[in-house]
């Protein structure tokens, strides 16, 4: 009985230490990426190629989701706001929720599922088939050649995707609010403009999405690079990418929001 209990606590302790270990090596990995970034910037076409794979190919799912999110926000918002006789404020509600929260957060979550998993699986497979080893033996650093371009592609794509998400979401909200519900088009835009501040709302949203871009891409790359070189190892790493990215995004979102609202 006692030994079972000790074993249980020992197991928990072991897992915590293991997590911390991985967290530390993740940070070291981040440092390596930054160190080797210079080499990858010199050959920009590598990064551009990766922007295509992470950014452009994620575009469709982002835009469709954004449109629906915007429409749902408008419907739900109208339902509540009309009870207080202020259904013109629907534009404000849609725009603020998108620009401050939903744009960056939902984009990051979709990014983790769409681009993050692809990155993890690709790098994990490159490792499993010894491609990374081969590169190393050719005196080419896999971090400079494979990892860093994907990192910067993710970091650059995320704010662009988030901005597109917010914009298309607002358009989706407009489609529901103005033609469908019959809110005045002028009131929709002017109320929105009056209460959405560029620095307080839009810029903070962009800052959030840049941070999410760093977190999601880093997690995806690290899980791929750290995956055991087997089929099972790669599939587990892909799952971990989604789970860890989502947790990181939601946690970081809370921390950043609290700073931004207090400041």
């Amino acid at each position: 009985m006692f030994s079972a209990l000790a074993g249980m606590f020992g197991g928990i302790g072991h897992r915590i230490i293991d997590r911390l270990w991985r967290f530390g090596s993740g940070l070291r990995f981040f440092a390596y990426i930054l160190i080797y970034s210079g080499e990858s910037f010199r050959r920009l076409h590598l990064t551009i190629r990766e922007i295509y794979f992470t950014g452009v190919l994620s575009l469709i799912i982002m835009l469709v989701s954004a449109f629906f999110v915007g429409m749902v926000l408008a419907l739900q918002g109208y339902n509540t706001l009309q009870r207080y006789g202020s259904s013109e404020a629907i534009g404000v509600l849609v725009a603020l929720s998108l620009v401050r929260e939903l744009g960056p957060v939902v984009t990051a979550l979709l990014f983790a599922g769409r681009a993050g998993t692809a990155i993890t699986a690709e790098i994990g497979l490159m490792k499993a088939t010894e491609q990374l080893s081969a590169m190393e033996m050719m005196a080419v650093s896999p971090i400079a050649r494979v990892v860093a371009p994907r990192f910067w592609a993710g970091v650059l794509s995320m704010p662009l995707l988030a901005a597109l998400f917010s914009m298309v979401g607002v358009l989706g909200g407009y489609m529901v609010a103005v033609p469908l519900i019959g809110v005045d088009s002028g009131a929709f835009w002017s109320q929105m403009q009056a209460s959405v501040d560029f620095k307080e709302d839009i810029l903070n949203g962009i800052i959030k999405s840049v941070v999410f871009g760093v977190a999601c891409t880093l997690i995806a790359l690290f899980e791929g690079f750290d995956a055991p070189p087997t089929a099972e190892g790669v599939s587990r790493a892909t799952t971990r990418t989604v789970v860890n990215s989502s947790l990181a995004v939601l946690g970081l979102d809370f921390v950043m929001t609290s700073f931004m609202i207090v400041a």
């Binding site: 403009q193 009056a194 560029f198 620095k199």
Partner: peptide
């Protein structure tokens, strides 16, 4: 992406602060 940013800045937001 850049156009969306501009759109947000000009059409959705204002530069009050």
């Amino acid at each position: 992406g850049a156009a969306a940013l501009f759109g947000l800045a000009l059409k959705v937001g204002n530069f009050n602060s």
